[in-house]
């Protein structure tokens, strides 16, 4: 059973939809609630990956900077996850995460979740499967963005 507020939030989060209670319990023991203010930086590009977040409310911009411009390449909001790279070993953060709106989220120590995945493969499979869905979605979105379908050339490659 999951008595805590954290547990209830976990259960309702779309990322974990359909995950058995036993595994939710396990996850809830690793989770703690965090809040970030508007414009607060959650992590920077190049940071060693540490935390994995399930966003409960708010909006986070994933940004890349180059001299002369800072580009938001994706936003993630309530019901989505942030920081999946923390579950992989030796992957530093690929983007900067900045809050566009105040954020409430559940945070997990990536290393501990990863260790738990190694320990309990059923748990690990479910987590990895969900991460893969997220990553595949991001990849698909990125491909569409690269196509630049709204440009004057209508997505044609020069």
């Amino acid at each position: 059973m999951i008595p805590t507020a954290v547990g209830a939030a976990l259960k309702d989060h779309p990322f974990l939809e359909g995950v058995p209670e036993r595994l939710l319990d396990k996850l809830s023991q690793l989770a703690f609630e965090v809040t970030f203010e508007e414009d607060q930086i959650i992590f920077r590009e190049g940071d060693p990956s540490s935390f994995f977040y399930l966003i409960l409310s708010g909006l986070v911009a994933l940004e890349l900077a180059a001299p002369g411009r800072v580009v938001t390449i994706q936003t993630v909001g309530d019901g989505e996850e942030l920081g999946w790279s923390s579950l992989m070993s030796r992957v530093d953060k690929q983007f900067r995460a900045r809050c566009m709106k105040p954020v409430k989220a559940l945070a997990f120590d990536g290393a501990r979740v990863a260790a738990e995945c190694e320990e309990d493969h059923e748990f690990g499979y479910l987590i990895m499967r969900r991460i893969l869905v997220t990553v595949a979605e991001r990849l698909r979105s990125t491909r569409m963005q690269v196509l630049d379908v709204y440009s004057a050339r209508g997505g044609q490659i020069k």
Binding site: R69, V70, V71, I73, T75, Q145
Partner: peptide, 11 residues
């Protein structure tokens, strides 16, 4: 598809 620093909506 691409937001700038002043854009506070979805990307």
């Amino acid at each position: 598809d691409y937001g700038g620093v002043s854009w506070r909506g979805y990307v």
